[in-house]
């Protein structure tokens, strides 16, 4: 089962005693503010979690994998995520328990 916004809101409701509507709005606002900052071209640094960075990519030649036709991939700006030391360490510490 994947973690969703609904489960995150449920946890805020249970742990903080805010109502369900406020909890849902809080989760929405959290992701919306991160998107807005990235849209402005601003890096987002969340200590203990990781950084969302922006990279600008130049136009490069591409190919339609179905037809083999050459089409340029246009210049674009993309988001990359770099997990922080604390997140990486916590994941590694628990990796022994993962099912293969």
């Amino acid at each position: 089962m994947a973690l969703t916004k609904a489960a995150m809101a449920e946890k805020l409701f249970e742990q903080m005693g805010i109502n369900k509507r406020e909890a849902k709005e809080m989760v929405d606002a959290f992701f919306e503010e991160i998107r807005t900052a990235l849209e402005r071209g601003e890096q987002v640094k969340l200590s203990g979690f990781g950084n969302f960075d922006l990279r600008t990519k130049n136009e490069r030649p591409g190919r339609n994998p179905k037809t083999g036709e050459e089409i340029p991939i246009s210049a674009r700006r993309v988001v990359t995520f770099h997990p922080g030391q604390k997140l990486r360490t916590r994941v590694e510490a628990n990796a022994g328990t993962f099912e293969q």
Binding site: L3, T4, K11, I18, M26, F30, L87, N94
Partner: peptide, 25 residues
């Protein structure tokens, strides 16, 4: 508190090898 709780929830999820799926994000 809410922001820290949400981030902790996300870390715990990944710690348990559970995916996080946020539509539109």
């Amino acid at each position: 508190i809410a922001v820290k709780t949400m981030l902790e929830h996300m870390v715990e999820s990944l710690e348990n090898n559970e995916r996080i799926e946020i539509r539109g994000f």
